[in-house]
Design a protein around this nucleic acid. Structure first.
Lengths: 226, 226
DNA sequence: TGCCAAATGTTACCATTGTCAACATAATTT
DNA sequence: AAATTATGTTGACAATGGTAACATTTGGCA
């Protein structure tokens, strides 16, 4: 007797999230550029145009993925900072390392968050908000460290931006396979540790010269060398 | 009398380069993701499938653009370093600033070089070669500075990588519009100057502690803080 | 010179894709 | 139970990347 097959119900149950997951799988396999809504739908076991009940268009699916990425990244960074509460310098480096670790272990998300698959991110307020919030964690830590005198005083925003740029750049380079031959054997974590340590050496308040006036230091920062 | 119209000749003359230029224009308008070979061909005043006489497929057109970008970037960085020959620390920072300036004034190229429009860059030896060569300029400068004792000794490769990551990350963030609200008014150049100055402060050999053994310093670099 | 091959362009065609409209079924509200 | 809303389905459309067959130049080479 043919036993009652599972008989796929007309309604999928949680198609929205399924679509996101399947899309992520495809992105990690073929890159964000070559993801096809129809193929995603097929793999989700659903007709092509069902996706449009959950996302206005293909880009909106990507936006959802990017948002998810920002949320997860935010949580990861928050946790890293939390683990060193009270010691902003340590917290700052830990945040940076966490950034690189997240990025390299979630390259699909990264690709969508920063890879330009979304034509005009600023069209999506939820996206910019998520990005801003992520960045805010960094800024807060820097401000805290600055207040405690742990960080080179002068321009907190610039310190935060430089830290962000370094870990972001490192993440992109690793994820993009750009640094295979130079440091192929090193784990992302160890690379991140070394890079952040180096930057922190420029960012930490110089113990010996701590008495030099902030004004002088700020001037040096801007005009130095070039 | 109908004067002899220019009567577009059957052969275009320099279609290959024209296609590249038109494609660049489209990328800068709509992003690398939404560039269409057919539309490019149309704008070049030629039938869609003519492009295939010059590029095996769409991706190969992008590869050509990326290569062009790497070549131009290489020249730019080389010139910047050259301008401070004999002073590696200065040369290093100048190279970094030049990187950011190139990136932000050629966002179309950047997008193709690093934006993931090319599914698997490692499939194109010419591309990896171009990238390597670009990076090599940086490495050389660092090695030189290290030899002169201008740079914190220990791990030259790590210094080079950190510098690259910082300027690369800064470039991506600026080009991606990610840092509109934090430092919107500052020019890319001034941001690059400040960021590189900060990193250089960690990278420069500490004048006072110059006698500390390299071994100790290397240990600090790896294990510091975390 | 005249002829042939290589280079370069063109048109016709195909499968795939993003998106929409019209229709079908399930879940929810009334 | 009836009506409304959510969710899926099928069928269409235009545009795209890519291939094949055919057309026009161009450049050697006899």
């Amino acid at each position: 007797m043919p036993r009652e097959k599972p008989k796929a119900p007309y309604h999928h149950g949680d198609l929205k999230n399924t679509l996101i997951d399947v899309a992520l799988a495809h992105i990690s396999r073929d890159g964000a550029g070559s993801v096809s809504l129809r193929e995603v739908a097929r793999d989700a076991g659903v007709s092509h145009s069902a996706a449009y009940r959950h996302f206005a268009n293909k880009e909106n699916l990507l936006v959802a993925i990017a948002e998810q990425g920002f949320r997860q990244l935010g949580e990861t960074l928050g946790a890293a900072a939390q683990a060193h509460a009270g010691d902003p310098a340590r917290a700052l480096q830990a945040t940076g390392v966490a950034y690189v670790e997240f990025a390299t272990s979630h390259p699909e998300h990264l690709q969508v968050m920063f890879g330009g698959s979304i034509a005009c991110p600023s069209d999506y307020p939820s996206l910019v908000a998520a990005g801003d919030e992520t960045y805010a964690a960094l800024t807060r830590t820097v401000a805290e460290g600055s207040k405690l005198g742990q960080l080179r005083s002068g321009d907190d925003a610039m310190i935060a931006l430089t830290c962000w740029a370094t870990v972001h750049g490192l993440s992109q380079l690793i994820a993009g396979g750009q640094i295979g031959r130079e440091a192929g054997d090193a784990s992302p974590r160890s690379l991140a540790l070394a890079a952040t340590a180096l930057v922190m050496q420029g960012v930490n308040a110089p113990a010996a010269a701590a008495k030099r006036s902030a004004k002088v230091k700020r001037r040096r920062l801007k005009q130095d060398v070039l």
